[in-house]
Simulated scan of single mutants.
Amino acid sequence: MLDVTRIKAISLDLDDTLWPIWPTIERAERVLHDWMVHNTPMAATLFSSPSALREIRDYMSTNRPDLRYDLSAVRRESIRLALYRAGENPLLAEEAFEVFFAERQRVTLFDDALPALEHLAQRFPLVSISNGNADVGRVGLARFFRASISAREFGVGKPDPRIFLAAAGAIDVQPEDVLHIGDDATLDVLGALNAGMQAGWVNRADHLWPHELQPQVTLAHLGELADLFR
């Protein structure tokens, strides 16, 4: 059971907790492809091949383990490799990535996200914890968060307890005083529980809980989280 009397801060996942990620990524990839059609047409042809893209991703995973927690670098270097293989100028990778990245920040929040953030930010310091490459400033949500911790900058991602401990330290509270909220049963919930936090699972699609260890609270949407503190 959730002990609301212990909560002094809330940490939040971003992708698929505050907004759906795959519509965002798919739109950003379409914008990138359109840019390539006009600027690097040979690479655009390569990017139209699912098998070629899969091979590039496999290559990056095998040969650049140092980029494991930096999705931006993985994306940028994958573009660079595609440009090189297509006979295009690999120096255009930076510009191409920025086209993708700018569109990736244009998220559409779940209907319950903004009202919940507005309410919770008045009650608690909030900190974001993400394995992804969303930028809360560019997304337009920086005013709600006291701090933001990303796997790319920290060098370790969820579910490693260290990134949760870093989030607690960033807002000057103990881990046991933090409630972490996220959609991923393993990365968010188990990671937070193993770091000594309380954890809430955002289960928008009514999935079955897959682990023996249980979250303190399960939420169908973030409005239910806000209601806990009214």
Rank of each mutant, 00 (worst) to 15 (best):
S130C: 04
V136Y: 01
P125E: 07
N89R: 11
R162E: 13
R76W: 08
P50S: 01
P210Y: 06
T45H: 12
F145S: 04
L18V: 01
P210T: 04
R85E: 04
R204Q: 07
L18I: 02
V99M: 00
D13K: 03
E94P: 01
Q198R: 07
F144L: 08
T40N: 12
L165A: 12
P20K: 06
T108K: 14
P125A: 03
M42P: 00
L53Y: 06
L213N: 10
F145Y: 11
V4L: 14
D172R: 15
S51I: 11
Y69R: 08
P161N: 04
L213Q: 15
A147R: 15
V107K: 02
R57I: 08
V74P: 00
W35L: 01
H207R: 15
F154T: 09
L219G: 05
A52K: 12
G196V: 01
P20H: 09
A220S: 15
K158H: 11
R138E: 12
E176I: 02
D183N: 14
P115R: 00
L12W: 12
L228I: 12
R57W: 05
D34N: 12
L225D: 02
R57Q: 12
A82E: 01
D188Y: 05
G223W: 06
L222Q: 08
S128D: 00
S148R: 06
A82F: 01
A134S: 15
D112N: 06
P65I: 06
N131M: 09
L120H: 07
I25S: 02
G169E: 15
M197L: 15
I129D: 06
S78Y: 02
R85H: 10
G182Y: 09
Y59N: 09
G196T: 08
D188I: 07
A142Y: 03
L225W: 06
Y69L: 00
V4D: 04
L18Q: 05
A96L: 07
N89L: 08
A151I: 09
E224P: 10
V31I: 13
S49L: 03
